[in-house]
Computed example of a mutant assay.
Amino acid sequence: MPQLKLEEVEIVRIDERYSRQARSLLFHSYIEEPTYRYLFDADQPGYKQRIRATLRELIRLHMDRGELMFGAIHKSEERLLGVAFCSDLELKTDISGQLLWRLKMILTAGLEGTKRFLRYFAEVQRSLPAKNHRMVSLIGVHPDFQKQGIGKMLLEAIHQVADQDQNSIGLFIDTGNNRYLEFYQSLDYRVFTELQLDQLQEFVLFRPNPNYIDTSAS
């Protein structure tokens, strides 16, 4: 595993110019993740293609909506080492109600994969409070550069922006990999709830916004 000096890494806002790199990076990050293995039936032919198609459609949707997207860039090589996407409540409406997006998913990720993804997405969203919040919807670090502090840098960049929204109660993130729980907890996330989707156990974590102002109490 190549060793990085973190001073060689810069966290920047990314746009559609980084779409291809982001898809490749997230593919390598997610291919062995329990959530994606369950959602897209890793034991059946075409698993890799289903992941690639899903990530392409998700990234396109985030970019079309102008979501908060950060990338970790190696300064000298201009290489994308990690990405993190943060969405707001409106993404729920776009995914659950956007017919064209659903059709694209069915055509590329398959009917069963799309049905599982939409069920998983709905279950996670249903577990969240109705109050204004944001969610870290996609995050990944290239396997060659994991466990070197890049994930922390990406999340801290999101925290810095999200914490400025005094109307938001905080950030949520979900994972089916319990190996990540300690890492998220080190950044002030706590387990908000646990979901059971067939054989998949999904953890939903929450990081409160330290600057949140509860106007309902006044």
Results as ranks from 00 to 15, higher is better:
residue 208 P to R: 07
residue 10 E to L: 15
residue 36 Y to R: 09
residue 159 H to S: 06
residue 5 K to Q: 11
residue 210 P to I: 04
residue 211 N to S: 15
residue 211 N to K: 14
residue 113 G to F: 04
residue 84 A to G: 04
residue 138 L to K: 02
residue 114 T to M: 14
residue 73 I to D: 03
residue 65 R to Q: 09
residue 24 S to E: 13
residue 24 S to V: 03
residue 53 A to F: 08
residue 88 D to S: 14
residue 163 D to P: 00
residue 7 E to W: 01
residue 172 F to Y: 15
residue 23 R to E: 14
residue 4 L to S: 09
residue 189 Y to A: 07
residue 34 P to F: 03
residue 94 D to Q: 12
residue 59 I to E: 04
residue 33 E to H: 10
residue 120 Y to K: 05
residue 69 M to F: 06
residue 143 P to Q: 07
residue 88 D to Y: 07
residue 87 S to T: 08
residue 117 F to G: 01
residue 28 H to W: 04
residue 180 Y to R: 08
residue 111 L to K: 09
residue 165 D to F: 11
residue 53 A to V: 11
residue 135 M to Y: 06
residue 9 V to H: 00
residue 70 F to C: 09
residue 210 P to L: 08
residue 210 P to R: 02
residue 33 E to V: 01
residue 10 E to M: 12
residue 186 S to R: 14
residue 194 E to A: 08
residue 21 Q to S: 14
residue 77 E to A: 14
residue 214 D to I: 09
residue 48 K to E: 15
residue 58 L to S: 08
residue 105 M to N: 10
residue 207 R to P: 00
residue 193 T to K: 15
residue 11 I to V: 15
residue 184 Y to C: 06
residue 156 E to Q: 15
residue 12 V to D: 00
residue 191 V to A: 10
residue 2 P to I: 12
residue 205 L to Q: 05
residue 62 H to I: 01
residue 79 R to T: 14
residue 188 D to T: 10
residue 5 K to F: 02
residue 44 Q to M: 10
